[in-house]
Design a protein around this nucleic acid. Structure first.
Length: 558
RNA sequence: UGGGGAAUCGUUCAACGGUAGGACAGCGGACUCUGACUCCGUCAAUCUAGGUUCAAAUCCUAGUUCCCCAGCCA
């Protein structure tokens, strides 16, 4: 390992041991094998980080990106493209090892012929229903197919004709001849090939025979000389079958290792459910910033680094659990605190007028871009008589320990001056329209010579210079930690959070944001971390709030 | 006794017969030109019952709970 301080886990233990015993000639070669039938999500990220992380951390380690595209009914090029983009964006490199299971179809078929010839596989003429009915149950053994004892010659003839397209879809399957009484259902003569007259996104109409997962997956790993084939827990009792095929073939056999899938609270990660959210338009697409998809997280503003660190800290083991999304936010804040440029943005503006400040006067004030990073430098910000401040930064009847503006109270305007509130202007209904203050010219830069202190520091923007912006503030997509915990007769959809998207129009942001580019990230002072959304145009900047800053004051109010 | 897995602070990961520790979350405080950051403190766990041992989260026995498997899905 290149970094001994990172957490170890049972998979690394296995690999280290295999290295010690030279089980795989000191090679470490993993793979990430997505099926291109949906978008990648945070759960996949854990697997990607694990597999590519292992390749990165071991001397000479490799990790392949391989599409497990054995089912043309569900798979599409769109998903291949998005997956490639997402893995790349996450920061991983498969070099020249981008593979497709479909590239091995010929080879797989030859292997099948070999099993037929050696009497390990047979063609079954039973219907799907018949096969299901004779499989037995969890507690009762299955019944052998009447076609189970055909000769290798007959099986070979039938298999050849299946491949040639002589038989109807669903009329026959090739089955492994194992044990219909096995307590492991996977070993009860599992199907290897089904007949499907479907066009495949890569092989077109070349095949009408498509391999099943159990048959295909081990072959893919074997062909690529994978050493450690890491998958999720539900494949644990497929391992005997994985091994059986490769042993029967006398082929190179990787070690399958299973770990618990990563779940995250307040969201769902089943492909079916994500698909449902998109198709039923509960969200605006796969990359909706509320989605746990990689593309959604990306658009929301999360970085590859924060996702990687999150996955590392969550860790790997064999118990299923649910991780706290707050940890991702923590990882993100940690990263951004060191790197994000600070800017001032007023999300809910109210006018503040400095009555003793000259009209039509503009002062340029200097502000640091990132107090955590002196190298980030400073910028100039225009200060004028009329400013916008945050509506919530003024209260007529402030509670105790309220540091912000109130009648007669003095606060600091960030990097500018101390101001004291003298009066407010209201409309007929009593709504505050303007806050009138006086400033102390001797506090320029936000510091007083006489040592007097103010507790509150407010952010602001000049009315004349502010840019218009729309800010999208997100909450959890679901109200419950476990969205599947729904009332009787209802499903996860009933737990959708109606306030998961809150659009703030009429926000005012500082001038320096004029040339902000899509995906660029900022800290809006005292608010949180935001990034520019692709919906921005030359008239209106659109920001997504990735995560808010921690706010111990707001917490006290609760 | 169908088979296969898993049980440690609220969550998550460690401890591999020798002081149950870290992170996140929570709570309290200090600091602060971001009520941020940072720092300090604090809360809090070995599924149960027996057994082996000087010593058990760890080994043994018996239970309990949870997850996965009856697709021509992966």
């Amino acid at each position: 390992m290149s970094d001994s301080t990172t957490a170890t886990n049972f998979i690394l233990d296995i690999i280290n041991n295999d290295l010690k015993t030279e089980k795989y000639d000191n090679r470490v070669h993993t793979r990430f094998p997505p099926e291109p039938n949906g978008y990648l999500h945070i759960g996949h990220a854990a697997s990607i980080c694990l597999n590519f992380g292992i390749a990165r951390d071991y001397e000479g380690g490799k990790c392949n990106l391989r599409f497990d595209d054995t089912n043309p009914i569900k798979e599409e090029q769109e998903f291949v493209d998005s997956i490639i983009q997402d893995v790349k964006w996450l920061g991983f490199d498969w070099e020249d090892r981008l593979f497709f299971a479909s590239d091995y179809f010929d080879q797989m078929y030859e292997y099948a012929v070999q099993l037929v010839k050696s009497g390990h596989a047979y063609v079954d003429d039973q219907t799907g229903d018949q096969i299901r009915q004779t499989r037995g149950t969890l507690k009762e053994p299955g019944i052998e197919s009447p076609f189970r004892n055909r000769t290798p010659e007959e099986n070979l003839d039938l298999l050849t004709r299946m491949k040639a397209g002589e038989f109807e879809e669903g009329s026959r399957v090739l089955r492994a001849k194992i044990d219909m009484t096995s307590p492991n259902m996977n070993m009860r003569d599992p199907a290897m090939y089904r007949i499907l007259y479907r066009s495949h996104h890569r092989t077109g109409n070349k095949w009408c025979l498509y391999p099943m997962y159990d048959w295909a997956h081990g072959l893919e790993d074997s062909i690529e000389k994978i050493t450690h084939s890491i998958c999720t827990l539900e494949f644990e009792d497929h391992r005997p079958l994985y091994d059986w095929f490769l042993i029967a073939l006398g082929a190179y056999r990787p070690q399958q290792i299973e770990f618990a899938r990563i779940n995250v609270n307040y969201t769902v990660t089943s492909k079916r459910k994500l698909m449902q959210l998109v198709t039923e338009k509960h969200v605006q697409g796969w990359d909706d910033p509320r989605m746990p998809t990689i593309s959604g997280l990306r658009r929301r503003g999360y970085t590859p680094e924060s996702i990687q660190i999150f996955c590392e800290r969550v860790g790997i083991n064999k118990r299923d659990g649910v991780s706290d999304i707050a940890l991702l936010d923590h990882c993100y804040r940690e990263e951004m605190n060191n790197s994000a440029k600070r800017v001032m943005a007023v999300l809910d503006p109210i006018k503040l007028i400095i009555t003793n400040y000259p009209e039509n006067h503009v002062e340029m004030l200097s502000s640091e871009n990132n107090p955590e990073d002196p190298e980030a430098g400073t910028r100039q910000i225009p200060f004028t008589r009329e400013l916008y401040i945050e509506r919530t930064d003024f209260m007529e009847d402030p509670p105790k320990k309220y540091f912000r503006l109130a009648l007669g109270k003095e606060v600091r305007l960030k990097q500018a001056y101390y101001v004291t509130c003298e009066s407010v202007v209201k409309d007929k209904d009593g709504n505050i329209l303007e806050i009138h203050c006086v400033y102390d010219p001797n506090t320029k830069g936000g510091w007083s010579q006489d040592g007097r202190k103010v507790r509150g520091t407010l952010h602001w923007v000049s009315v004349d210079h502010a840019l218009d912006a729309e800010v999208r503030v997100y909450e959890h997509l679901f109200l419950k930690e476990n969205p599947n915990d729904a009332e009787e007769g209802k499903d996860f959809i009933s737990n959708l959070n109606p306030n998961s998207l809150n659009i703030l129009a009429g926000c005012k942001v500082e001038q320096s944001l004029k040339d902000a580019t899509v995906e660029e990230k900022y800290q809006f002072l005292r608010h949180g971390y935001f990034c520019v959304d692709k919906d921005s145009n030359s008239d209106l900047l659109v920001f997504n709030r990735t995560v808010p800053l921690r706010d111990s004051w707001a917490k006290k109010g609760k």
